[in-house]
Amino acid sequence: MSARAVTSKLSFLGMAGRHNRVPSPYPWLMPVILVMGLFYLYPVVDVFRYAFTDLTLLGGEGHYTLSTFANVLTRPELLQILWVTFVFTAGSVIGQQVIGLAMALVVVRSEKRHLFGTTILRTTALIAWVVPGIAGGIIWKMLFNEAPFGGLNSLLRLLGMAPVQWLSDPDVVMWSVVLSNVWRGTAFSMVVMYAALKAIDPSLYEAAEVDGATARQKLFFVTLPQLRPAILVNMILITIQTLNTFDAIISLTGGGPGRATEVLSLYTFNVVFRNYDLAAGSVLSIVMLVISLGLALIYASFLPKDEKA
């Protein structure tokens, strides 16, 4: 091996002599590239590969074909599934963002005033967040149970109110599912908003007070503009999280009645694990990926340019 080749190799490994000491990033990046490639990229590549086949879980080699795409994207139920997914995601994201922000404002305000119960409020919200989705679904199923001994309806009866068909009315069931998801996910938004609120320069509020701004004006002209990047990042994260949610729904409604609460992730799960159609499930996974990426890009386009960097 020539001296030049050795130097070049050492340079690649970041071990070159002192005279040309520009450390190569590759040795340091290799572990993360390997891990990302192995555990993240490879499955994604496999999903794309399966989508162009007719593979099932039932055996057989499968053949490469474009017909799976055509078949899945023209299924009559797909539009309804997408609509249900839109309503569930929009309801959950708006609910989690608004309530999370409100709770963060209350917590920050309470801390400033040293009010009792701030920690209890914060901890209670966080408890809901750490409950696994399946368990959360079961808890809400017990609450929404429409039997005479069901949780929420028993409470309504005690108050002299009529029981509600939480899960059997197709017009109500989606909002029951959204409620359970907002309950579970709000704590995450609260934590993000709380951190962002703490980072706002107090001098901005002092200046607003000098100018005679009311509390409402301070919220709309100081707080919300300052929170904009955090709100957008939070919305990207909770949108993707909500789009992937199916564990809470599967244990609460199973996607029913009919298809009233069958979101895209649950539909994908059903196609793979109940219809055994691996190829169709892969196509649906790509649809989910495209939707998630599209929404993330739309949100990101609203980020201030310097924040993007």
Binding site: D169, P257, G258, R259, A260, R274, N275
Partner: peptide, 23 residues
């Protein structure tokens, strides 16, 4: 038969729609 799980799945979806008056 291989198609039975899908028959069952479709009966479940159908039953939900019928019992709630959605179809």
């Amino acid at each position: 038969v291989l198609v039975y799980p899908e028959i069952s799945n479709q009966i479940q979806i159908m039953m939900g729609k019928v019992l709630t008056g959605a179809a």
